[in-house]
Design a protein around this nucleic acid. Sequence first.
DNA 1: ATTCTACTTGCAAATAAATTGCAAGTAGAA
DNA 2: TTCTACTTGCAATTTATTTGCAAGTAGAAT
Lengths: 139, 139
Amino acid sequence: MTMTVVADALKKRGFRVTAPRIRIFNVLQKASYPMSVQEVKMGTKGVDTVTVYRTLEAFKRVGLVAQVDLQLGRALYELKEGKSDHHHIVCVSCKKIEDFTGCDYQPIAQQALKQSKGFTKIINHSLELFGLCTLCATK
Amino acid sequence: MTMTVVADALKKRGFRVTAPRIRIFNVLQKASYPMSVQEVKMGTKGVDTVTVYRTLEAFKRVGLVAQVDLQLGRALYELKEGKSDHHHIVCVSCKKIEDFTGCDYQPIAQQALKQSKGFTKIINHSLELFGLCTLCATK
DNA sequence: ATTCTACTTGCAAATAAATTGCAAGTAGAA
DNA sequence: TTCTACTTGCAATTTATTTGCAAGTAGAAT
């Protein structure tokens, strides 16, 4: 994902392109795993925590970022790469996180909409697996 | 799900069957949607908030309850009915929640395990859809 | 039924997460 | 360069969740 894409995505939705937002974007870009607000703040140093919250929320609305809930007591965030959407497996014991791909969610969404009385549009989805990593399983 | 199932599930794991736990179970049993800790507390009145937290955690460990994250800033909990597992569609605007069934997650889990280097066992999964309800979509 | 011990509970207090108000700063259109 | 609406940082709140501990109790053992 290029810087221009970010700037355009923001502007298109009426958001401004600012230094803190660019810095936060860069931190997310480097991450190999979804980050917490605190982690993002650490990575940017100088940007206030509140700004991180607000920026991640803005990125989320704009569709640049996905919120990930892994039952860790806090929300995590990661860039939505244009490519195939991936999801996570989390070890319920040591909290190790791994990615996996291959969620064909379109048919599920279609089926859900067909069943639904009150919804007509799906914007996004979350899918997470919880398990025991090989290490923790042997204990 | 019967009371006996609850008692057995708890005992089997070394948990005791107590009045607060039974009351909390009953509240969850009546609910038609996943409940927050506060809502459960409201429904039981007399049971301390901390006890609700600890009990829900225990139920979760025992496999009686599922934690549901709908990006609402707090965790929700609902009984895992023995029957087909269901998931939720949430309106990102008004937070309306609806259920849907038909998540065939086994093949996904299998595929994830096949890809994985560090995991060999999946315990459970979460799948939530986020969209706009018909009402909010027209605004 | 009584005893005993480990598991539970409630209360208070501490952490941590997320939100809100507001004055000062600034992106970007004019 | 100007001007205005969007942003930011700071302080203060609110809300969620966790921890410590003494008193209470389920359930196994007697």
